[in-house]
């Protein structure tokens, strides 16, 4: 792709910022999860819960990082289904964790 055909819509930039916003939202939820787990005291289950929510957060962070760096290409590759699924799975994992600590 030549420089003359530059994208006037800044699509990669917007997508990169969308990933950053989403990562920020995920971080807030992960922090709430950690707070919830710590509230229950430092029992074995609590430590496991903290570890799991950090794992979900790291999984999301990994996908987001891959996408954010991928946006630097002249023609960014489309999102792969595996990455989409990982992002959604990490989100669901945080919700499952919330339900588990509700009772």
């Amino acid at each position: 792709m030549s420089a003359a055909e530059r994208d006037p819509g800044l699509q990669p930039e917007r997508t990169r910022l969308a990933w950053r916003r989403t990562t920020l939202a995920c971080t807030v939820v992960a922090l709430l999860a950690v707070r919830q787990a710590l509230h229950g005291g430092s029992t074995g289950a609590g430590v496991l819960a903290v570890a799991l929510s950090l794992l979900a957060w790291l999984g999301f962070l990994g996908v987001a990082h891959r996408r954010v760096t991928g946006m630097g290409a002249a023609r960014p590759d489309p999102l792969s289904p595996r990455h989409a699924l990982t992002a959604a799975a990490c989100t669901v994992l945080l919700a499952v964790f919330a339900v588990a600590t509700l009772f």
Binding site: T15, R67, R75, P78
Partner: peptide, 13 residues
């Protein structure tokens, strides 16, 4: 690719 990226942003939203 711009359409794919737009779809990705909708997914992220």
């Amino acid at each position: 690719y711009r359409f794919s990226l737009a779809n990705e942003r909708t997914f992220l939203a």
